[in-house]
Design a protein around this nucleic acid. Structure first.
Length: 891
RNA sequence: GGGCGGAUAGCUCAGUUGGGAGAGCACAGCCCUUACAAGGCUGGGGUCACAGGUUCGAGCCCUGUUCCGCCUACCA
């Protein structure tokens, strides 16, 4: 505490260990207290903490610590996600580095390797969350591949299958040739590119002439089984029913008519490749076209591609184009803007690919989920996101949930090799009902997001009816970035409603994305990534947390600037030094009493004022947090502590602390301690470490052994006192008035000034009673106060609503500077008068504006008018003094 | 193609029912006043993107325009 600067090193771990040891973060399965629960968005087990997590964690922890302190049975349930494709990729790469191919290793051995890897490195991100101060209940930590969660996954799969909401079938899905798995629509990231549109001539089979089709993927012509035109397209009417021959392959395919074709695009004729395009697949179905697969799962061409077999898909495209050109089939090539889908895990260009996959029939689930938000069972904050939610939900497509990878929840389905029976079961079946034991389990695993969708209840013990489930479901709020609104939030709502019959959370708070200070999305390749751990190491976790909270305004992206962190570290230092100030002003004779026991008559104006302000701050923080206005709460605390507590209050009470009156001194130090202690408590959710460190050493009366279980302050902790606030306003006016004169006229702060105050509306009592405040803060010596004070010679003037302040400046005054200063004020007043006059003379305004506004305007007008006239008089006087000074000097 | 959001001080951003615009940082001047120089005091700085409209009154509401960002989509 003796150090002038706050040093975060060593402190953070000490307190975190203490909290854990005391089990403060552990929730009760059964409790009389109201419950508050947040489940963490589980980070990928392969992950390491990035700035987005840091924001997530900070906002979570603020809410959770606030509620815990407010007396709720609070559960913040942590865990990690097995992140199927991502984790498999990581381990696969590691094995490759050792020269091991996973296919050689085999499925079982490979999964063992992943578990080993998980045991070694899976704790990394968890430890990083802890270093952020996250007050999670670690005794309830979960992993999406835990036994319990796996049970939940199987249970829901079987249930949905039984209801016909899960089905298997051959469809065109998104296929990543590198990961060699299906992807859901959401897992494909579209990127706009300037591509080409190739016009290819198909010659008619039995007569001269040709039809030209336009395509962006010329290599797929190898799989064409028809050419389609719009039935109403006059250009092609005669060709319908005829056939063309595909170049090179010489396969004969029909020209068909289909409503889908847009006659205005390209040539109005579309090549139809049912195995490699979702629309073509539909057309193919309608017309019973053959389906020809020309590409393998790894992106090479099949033998159906004839001379191009085994070629990579992009090499094949080049060769196809060359050959078509050589043979005179390439009519033209046009620039064409389009969007190309990439795998969200490995950035490989995805292929629309025909294969047998499992799907969730999603519409019935989506309807309920739409209703839940529309009827307010789930409230999305900020509400603007509701539009996106509805738009997506209303156009939702069936969800492809099978993945051709090894790491994940294996689909609980077995196929009988003897009779084609499909057995869906939580346990491994021994025999088929046909009697055969020749059963084989489906090779695929489920989409990771399928298990994530169950997270809010699977983590609480579902499908068992546990106490945790009864106590904490529905959870209170889900806090996350908008990037996983559809991936995760929407699916949780659907599954929560389906399994639990209730929404998984009452609120969804969507926070912004963090960008770099130039507004660019952070990415490793750009090298603009801010490492939160580097930040916390440098500035302390509390400073980083407070920065993120202060940045977290609703509905706007965050442009993260390290300088802002530095600024808030200064704030921590400021807070730290208040503690030092208190310590220095307490000795063995100091008697500290609870504020409630202090007689009101020993409380000085400053004490009453700060208590009143504290009271307001308490209720403002409460409102802001309730509405998830994190930035507002941060700024309220910053403003109050730095400017009101430090700049005004502590300076005001110095005379009382250094004075002789022991009773007043005790009352003041008790008040200071109280306000500071409450402020620390208010701050604790935002900056847990420094507040606990200071709080523990504070000689205040305490009723808790740690700040994190102290009752969160509410408005009674201060005493609202408008009389004190009004009076302090007058004192502040005097002080700032004199300070302005000093500052603008460049008078040394060390020079003691005399002040004469002419009161205008009975403020002399207030002033007379509080002279020490003025002398201390404005550095004045003698002060004269009265209604009839006359402006002395050679004085500067400050004009305030309830008084005129004169500061005689014999010897130090710069006449021209003071005239300039007053003229500036005069002009401002004149502008005001003109403006307000115009307004009040406006008949429409008088007729139509609310009375309160008119009254207010009138008062402002009067004040401005008065200020103008005072300024005029003052300027006149000082000019004369200037002259007479000149006379004296001359004479 | 559809939708959403943004444009306010040099920078980053607040601005909650429409009543002459605020903060932090940066900048300038003065100060090492015994909590803090990672500090104190004072000050300068804005056509609220542009053009219309509604209103007594618009940063805020309406229409259009420009620029930027994002989401979403099966026009090959």
């Amino acid at each position: 505490m003796s150090d002038k600067r706050y040093n975060h090193k060593d402190i953070e771990k000490k307190w975190y260990d203490f909290w854990i040891e005391k089990k403060y973060f552990e929730a009760e399965s059964k409790s009389d207290k109201p419950s508050y629960c947040i489940v963490i968005p589980p980070p990928n087990v392969t992950g390491s903490l990035h700035i987005g997590h840091a924001l997530d964690i900070t906002l979570h922890d603020i809410m959770v610590r606030w509620k815990r302190m407010s007396g709720f049975n609070t559960l913040w349930l942590p865990g990690t996600d097995h992140a199927g494709i991502a984790t498999q990729n990581v381990v696969e790469k590691n094995l490759q580095a050792e020269g091991i191919d996973r296919h050689v290793l085999g499925r079982e051995k490979f999964i063992e390797k992943v578990w080993e890897w998980k045991k070694l490195y899976g704790g990394t991100i968890i430890n990083q969350l802890k270093s952020m101060g996250a007050s999670c209940d670690w005794s309830r930590e979960r992993f999406t591949l835990d036994e319990g969660l796996s049970k939940a996954v199987k249970e829901i799969f079987i249930r949905l299958y039984g209801e016909g909401l899960i089905y298997r079938g051959d469809y065109i899905i998104n296929w990543c040739p590198r990961c060699q798995t299906a992807l859901s629509d959401l897992e494909v990231e579209h990127e706009d590119v300037k591509g080409k549109l190739y016009y290819i001539k198909y010659k008619l089979a039995y007569e001269d002439g040709y039809i030209t089709v336009a395509t962006t993927r010329p290599e797929t012509y190898l799989g064409d089984t028809a050419v389609a035109v719009n039935p109403d397209d006059d250009r092609y009417k005669d060709l319908i029913g005829k056939t063309v021959k595909l170049p090179v392959l010489n396969r004969e395919i029909p020209i068909i008519a289909d409503e889908f074709v847009d006659a205005s695009f390209g040539t109005g004729a579309v090549k139809v490749t049912p195995a490699h395009d979702p629309n073509d697949f539909e057309i193919g179905r309608r017309h019973n076209l053959p389906i020809i697969k020309i590409m393998n799962g790894d992106g090479t061409m099949t033998e159906e591609a004839g001379p191009y077999r085994d070629q990579d898909r992009f090499t094949c495209r080049k060769n196809v184009l060359n050959d078509l050109e050589d043979l005179g089939h390439l009519e033209q090539v046009k620039d064409h803007d389009m969007a190309i889908g990439h795998c969200y895990r490995c950035r490989t260009i995805v292929e629309p690919y025909l294969s047998k996959q499992w799907f969730v029939k999603i519409k019935p689930l989506a309807e309920e989920a739409i209703k839940a938000v529309r009827e307010g069972d789930v409230k999305i904050i900020p509400s603007g996101w509701e539009n996106s939610y509805f738009a997506w939900m209303e156009n939702i497509k069936d969800w492809c949930i099978s993945r051709q990878i090894w790491w994940g929840h294996r689909i609980p389905v077995w196929y009988c090799k003897s009779c084609d029976e499909v057995i869906v079961s939580a346990e491994t079946p021994k025999k088929c009902k046909c009697g055969s034991d020749n059963l084989k389990q489906d090779e695929d695993v489920l989409d990771t997001w399928f298990s994530s969708a169950l997270w809010p209840f699977s983590t609480l013990g579902w499908p068992d009816n546990t106490d945790d489930l009864k106590t904490f479901y529905p959870t209170s709020v889900l806090i996350t970035g908008f990037d996983i609104l559809f991936f995760w939030v929407a699916r949780m709502i659907m599954m929560g409603l389906k399994c639990m019959g209730k929404q998984p959370f009452d609120h969804v708070y969507i926070h912004a994305l963090i960008r770099d200070s130039a507004g660019q999305k952070m990415s490793k390749s750009k090298g603009n990534v801010v490492d939160p751990l580097e930040m916390t190491g440098k500035y302390g976790t509390d400073a980083v947390r407070f920065t993120l909270a202060a940045y977290a305004a609703q509905g706007r992206d965050i442009k993260f600037d390290e300088k802002r962190v530095e600024g808030y570290r200064h704030f921590l230092n400021k807070i730290w030094n208040v503690a030092r100030f208190i310590t220095m002003n307490i000795d063995d004779n100091t008697e500290i009493k609870p504020v409630k026991e202090l007689p009101k008559d020993v409380l000085s104006l400053a004490n009453r004022w700060i208590l009143s302000r504290l009271s307001t701050v308490c209720s403002e923080i409460d409102t802001a947090l309730k509405e998830y206005r994190f930035n507002d709460s941060a700024s309220i605390l910053y403003q109050f502590i730095w400017h009101e507590l430090c700049d005004w209050y502590i300076e005001l009470i110095k005379p009382e602390l250094y004075g002789e009156d022991i009773e007043i001194k005790n009352a003041t130090i008790s008040t200071l301690l109280h306000v500071y202690e409450v402020a620390l408590a208010l701050l604790h959710p935002f900056m847990p470490f420094i507040t606990e460190e200071i709080w523990q050493t504070l000689p205040s009366p305490k009723d808790a052994e740690s700040l994190c279980i102290r009752k969160y302050p509410v408005a009674e902790e201060g005493i609202k006192d408008s009389d004190a606030e009004e009076k302090m306003g007058v004192i502040m006016d005097v002080v700032t008035g004199i300070r302005s004169i000093r500052g603008e006229l460049n008078i040394s702060p060390s020079l003691e000034l005399k002040a004469l105050i002419k009161t205008l509306n009975g403020s002399e009592n207030i002033l007379n009673e509080n002279i020490p405040y003025i002398t201390k803060l404005a550095r004045t010596g003698e002060i004269e106060i009265g209604k009839d004070i006359q402006a002395p010679k050679n004085s500067a003037t400050a004009i305030k609503p309830s008084m005129k302040i004169f500061v005689p400046l014999e010897g130090v005054i710069d006449v021209d500077a003071e005239i300039a200063r007053l003229t500036k004020e005069r002009d401002k007043a004149e502008d005001n008068v003109a403006f307000l006059k115009r307004k009040l003379h406006n008949k429409e305004f008088i007729n139509k504006a609310p009375k309160a506004v008119i009254e207010e305007t009138k008062v402002k007008y009067k004040d401005s008018l008065e200020k103008l006239s005072i300024a005029d008089v003052s300027i006149e006087k000082i000019k004369q003094w200037g002259k007479s000074d000149g006379d004296q000097n001359n004479g």
